[in-house]
Design a protein around this nucleic acid. Structure first.
Length: 527
DNA sequence: GACCCCCGCCAC
DNA sequence: AAACGTGGCGGGGGTC
């Protein structure tokens, strides 16, 4: 963002490369200084949120410098296995494609795929609307539609499989530094909401550590003598929505539901008070919600979990139905019971449908409040942490409203987690921070007799109490511990054989309960 | 060959 | 009519 071009300043002799870079650096810095001084003059002191972001530079720089140790052998084995599977599957696909259209097929080229499926195989085109535009697509959703044509099925399955394998391999092939550590670059002030973002670093190594697939995380490990801790905030965005409804309308029903044991079971009870035989025994009711079928093989609890999240953010029944692969009518029924309600009516067949009273009408009411905020000056929202965002989109547009609705809980979560992260950095020098995952933080602690004590202290530090008219709200954290970053039990997509169980992986922390020893020798990791 | 956009896909 | 938000990355395929 230089206002003056270097050429204009160039003296009679041209600048050397390094001088050019330094000149650019100076100019850019000075422009920023000018902007800073201008903005500073508007305030007596900088907004608190600005000072907070500056304070975050220390812990984030520390994480960026430290890096996260990678189990090089595990990584290479996974890459080799993936590559071998890719080669075999690609050979099969090529053979089939040769027979069908006379040439091989690149599963990562949408152009080739369109030509293949819609011209060579002459299948009906699948148009999907994405971001307001209808597009001829070859993404997973489109290919799954083509899967109903028998002769397309082997191609669909090979293409999806190859894309999946390639994606996993790419992540594992991300360049790490010579000391065997991956260093991501965090951008503290890079997003609209206050979330940090992560990307490859200034030296071109590392990558986004915040979107590593769960099944690949086991390659990231604790240093020798250390053990990993991941603390995440339990259902934080749902709780925040409940908090907003309480503060704005004195309606605490949703926060109460979040705080009364298992959120999704509580929601089930309120949405279907009579349909299931509730016992009042928490474990029994959770089991009931989980094992009773609402639609096909989807339980009532699953509906509460997936459907509720989408619905909270003003997702339509249409979208929820598409994502969850269910009929629209099923989601309409859910949303009516959950938040929207419905007047009585008689359908075409003459069947009478009684009125539905929604369980949480405060949520659409909260949307209304948001709409009003962004439609009237100053067209902004401010979170409980004092982060203000102006909405420059057309105030009446649904997209603007949806951004605004998502902003409140997302931003609140970001600041809550960052405050916890900062406190851990400030007050616990015995902790080494390794990563931030929006609603979670990962760090390592010496693997000795004081381990549990340290975890307990960190769990306390991430608690940020909010208060309103006598109501106190804290989002609790949950800790998982282990020596590698994968999950111990659910390694989900196992990479070939031998990875179905991950003994060094993360398990729920219970003080004094984890009697495991580290299985993978650290010599192997460092080799 | 550098650059850019599109596409598909991973996370929360 | 359009249809939940916030991000980053790599490959394909085009342009300059």
């Amino acid at each position: 963002m230089t206002l003056i071009k270097t050429e204009e300043l160039t003296p009679t002799t041209p600048l050397s490369a390094i001088d050019t870079l330094q000149t650019y650096c100076c100019l850019d810095s000075l422009v920023m200084l000018e902007v800073f001084e201008e903005i500073s003059s508007l305030f007596n002191q900088p907004p608190q949120i600005y000072s907070f972001e500056r304070a975050l530079q220390a812990p984030y720089l520390e994480m960026m410098q430290r890096g996260f140790l990678v189990d090089e052998l595990a990584r290479r084995q996974a890459v080799d296995s993936l590559r071998a599977r890719e080669l075999r599957l690609q050979a099969t696909l090529n053979e089939m494609a040769q027979a069908a259209c006379g040439h091989s097929l690149n599963p990562r080229s949408p152009a080739q795929l369109k030509d293949f499926f819609y011209s060579s195989l002459k299948l009906p085109e699948v148009w999907l609307s994405q971001k307001g535009e209808r597009k001829l697509s070859t993404n997973r959703e489109a290919l799954e539609k083509l899967d109903s044509y028998l002769y397309a099925r082997p191609f669909v399955s090979a293409v999806l499989g190859l894309r999946d394998l390639a994606k996993q391999r790419e992540v594992l092939e991300t360049e790490i530094d010579r000391d065997g550590r991956i260093r991501t670059s965090y951008n503290i002030a890079g997003t609209e909401t206050g979330r940090p973002s992560s990307s490859s670093n200034a030296f071109g190594t590392g990558g986004n550590l915040q979107n590593v697939a769960l099944g690949l995380r086991y390659v990231f490990v604790a240093d020798p003598g250390w053990k990993l801790v991941v603390i995440d905030l339990e259902q934080v965005e749902a709780r925040d929505v409940g908090w907003f409804c309480g503060v704005l309308f004195n309606d605490w029903s949703y926060l109460d539901a979040c705080e009364s044991g298992d959120l999704h079971t509580s929601v089930c009870k309120l949405v279907w008070p009579r349909e299931l035989k509730w016992t009042g025994v928490p474990d029994r009711d959770k089991w009931l919600a989980d094992s009773s079928i609402f639609y096909r093989d989807f339980s009532y609890r699953f509906m509460s979990k997936r459907g509720a999240h989408l619905s909270n953010y003003m997702g339509t029944a249409w979208t929820a139905a598409r994502v969850m692969k269910m009929p629209i009518a099923t989601l309409e029924e859910f949303q009516a019971r959950y938040i929207l309600g419905r007047a009585q009516f008689t359908d075409k067949k003459g069947t009478f449908h009684p009125a539905i009273v929604p369980a949480f009408p405060c949520i659409p009411r909260w949307w209304q409040w948001i709409a009003q905020q962004i439609q009237t000056p100053p067209h902004s929202l401010t979170t409980p942490f004092g982060r203000t965002r102006h909405f420059f989109g057309r105030p009446g547009d649904d997209t603007t409203l949806r951004e605004a609705i998502a902003y409140m809980p997302q931003s609140t979560t970001a600041d809550r987690m960052n405050l916890g992260l900062w406190r851990i950095w400030k007050h616990m020098p015995q902790v080494q921070l390794l990563g931030q995952g929006y609603d979670s933080v990962t760090f390592q602690v010496q693997d000795d007799s004081r381990f549990d004590e340290v975890v307990a202290e960190a769990l306390e530090l991430i608690k940020v109490p909010l208060e309103h008219q006598g109501r106190r709200y804290i989002c609790p954290g949950e800790a998982k511990v282990g020596w590698n970053w994968g999950s111990m039990h659910d390694a989900s997509k196992p990479l070939g054989q031998g990875n179905k169980f991950n003994p060094d992986g993360l398990v729920k922390w219970q003080p004094g309960q984890d009697r495991r020893q580290r299985q993978v020798g650290i010599k192997r990791i460092m080799a």
